[in-house]
Design a protein around this nucleic acid. Structure first.
Length: 271
DNA sequence: ACTTCGACCTGTTGGC
DNA sequence: TGCCAACAGGTCGAAG
């Protein structure tokens, strides 16, 4: 389901419902996600409250005082708030019963997501400790990205999708940012000049910020925390438009596979 | 240290 | 209509 804007939208969405709520019970219906869900949360969490929800990259961090629930939504995960009386849905793997008569449901058909538990600083967790900077932070700038790219022969698209380089840039926004910056997705990271990296950094920041502002509405099966379809078609210039006309020059957009991911670009505008 | 590739899953779509 | 292959928002970890 998510790229960073969608995860941030989920964070804001559930925050208003669960912040300050006490957890009455935890149900684990399917523990086999990307990593097994630690069973100890069933006895540890009841009686504690969700103090606040933060985000690091595409990870959601639910601070419960005694520790932190770390959630990654993978490709198909979602979080949903519903009345505690309402029936569960297929693939509702974990359900948090809250004190205000609602339930927080973690649903993930493909089970590429995960739900972990960290008693200490979640940022020191092995999955989070090596993450690159947040794309919308000051730390993510042209000097950083240019320096990081030297001697890297990988395609620029793979480079910016690497979470150790920068977090939160998924397949869709990588394609869009490269189009926006006029950079060919297969260009080796080390070969790009500093001015071109400036354009790329600007494009990534602009596109992600705009998507967050619009409520993370890029994805086909994105649903809001209220469980409603949240799909409002947003202007994507290249992703999903292979074979169609470039919005800039009218040339036919090319569709290739790069590192097993569908990649669309304009061979005229992106060099 | 960098790069490639397989693996983890279910659901949807499109061709025949 | 059914069947089957291809593909889908991610990313870790093994192997080269």
């Amino acid at each position: 389901m998510p790229e960073l804007p969608e995860v941030e939208t989920v964070r804001r969405g559930i925050n208003k419902y669960v912040k300050g709520q006490q957890i009455n019970a935890v149900e684990i219906h399917q523990p086999q996600l990307r990593w097994p869900i630690p069973p100890l949360i069933k006895r540890l969490l009841p009686g504690h409250s969700i103090i606040e929800i933060k985000r690091r990259g595409k990870y959601l961090l639910l601070n419960c005082g005694v520790g932190t629930i770390i959630i990654h939504l993978g490709m198909s995960g979602s979080l949903r708030i519903q009345n505690s009386e309402a029936t569960l849905q297929k693939h509702d793997h974990v359900v948090f019963r809250l004190s205000n008569q609602t339930s927080l449901c973690f649903n993930d058909p493909r089970r590429f997501g995960c739900l972990l538990w960290e008693e200490h600083d979640p940022l020191q967790h092995r999955l989070l400790s090596k993450l690159g900077p947040e794309p919308l932070s000051k730390a993510f700038d042209v000097d950083y990205l240019f320096a990081k790219s030297r001697k890297r022969q990988v395609a620029i698209k793979q480079f910016i999708m690497n979470s150790q380089v920068v977090v939160g840039v998924g397949n869709i926004y990588a394609c869009e940012a490269l189009f926006n910056a006029g950079i060919h997705p297969e260009c080796a990271a080390a070969k790009l000049s500093k001015p071109r990296y400036q354009r790329l950094v600007d494009a990534i920041k602009r596109i992600l910020a705009q998507a967050i502002k619009q409520g993370g509405t890029t994805l086909r099966d994105f649903i809001t925390v209220e469980g409603k379809p949240g799909y409002f078609k947003q202007q994507l210039h290249v992703y999903g438009r292979g074979g169609e006309a470039c919005t800039n020059c009218k040339a036919t957009l090319k569709s290739i596979r790069l590192a097993q991911r569908s990649t669309v670009y304009c061979s005229h505008c992106q060099t």
